[in-house]
Simulated scan of single mutants.
Amino acid sequence: MILRTVYPEAPIRVEYAPTPPLGQTLRGSLKALTEWSVQHIEDVRTTREEYDGRPEKR
């Protein structure tokens, strides 16, 4: 579903692209996930900090 192309350069360059047709069907879903992530980044950071700061269970 994802085409990975490695270019033998210094430094190495790698490109990723959705494959036709199956990978391209994911574009809408990935765009929606990206938009959600941008809208909720502060909530994610706050939740992560709260989680990281909790006491450890043993």
Results as ranks from 00 to 15, higher is better:
Pro21Lys: 06
Arg4Phe: 03
Pro11Thr: 11
Val6Gly: 05
Thr5Met: 13
Gly28Glu: 01
Arg4Asp: 07
Pro8Lys: 13
Pro11Trp: 02
Leu30Ala: 14
Thr25Trp: 04
Glu15Trp: 03
Pro21Gly: 14
Ile2Ala: 04
Gly23Glu: 03
Gly28Leu: 01
Tyr16Met: 13
Val14Ile: 15
Ile12Trp: 03
Ala32Trp: 02
Pro20Arg: 15
Leu3Thr: 06
Gly23Val: 02
Tyr16His: 11
Ser29Lys: 03
Tyr16Lys: 06
Thr25Asn: 03
Val6Pro: 02
Lys31Met: 00
Thr5Asn: 11
Leu26Arg: 00
Ala17Cys: 06
Ala10Asp: 09
Ala32Arg: 11
Thr25Asp: 02
Leu3Lys: 09
Val6Leu: 11
Tyr7Leu: 12
Ala10Arg: 10
Thr34Ser: 08
Thr25Gly: 00
Arg13Val: 12
Val6Tyr: 09
Ala10Pro: 12
Ile12Phe: 05
Arg13Cys: 14
Arg27Val: 02
Leu30Asp: 11
Val14Gln: 12
Ser29Pro: 04
Leu26Thr: 01
Leu26Trp: 03
Val14Gly: 15
Thr25Gln: 02
Lys31Asn: 00
Arg27Lys: 13
Thr5Ala: 08
Ala10Gln: 14
Thr25Ile: 03
Arg13His: 09
Tyr7Gln: 08
Thr34Arg: 10
Val14Ser: 12
Gln24Thr: 01
Arg27Ala: 04
Ala32Thr: 12
Ala10Gly: 09
Val6Ile: 09
Ala32Ile: 10
Ser29Trp: 00
Tyr7Asn: 15
Arg13Ala: 07
Pro21Ile: 06
Lys31Val: 00
Thr5Gln: 15
Tyr16Pro: 04
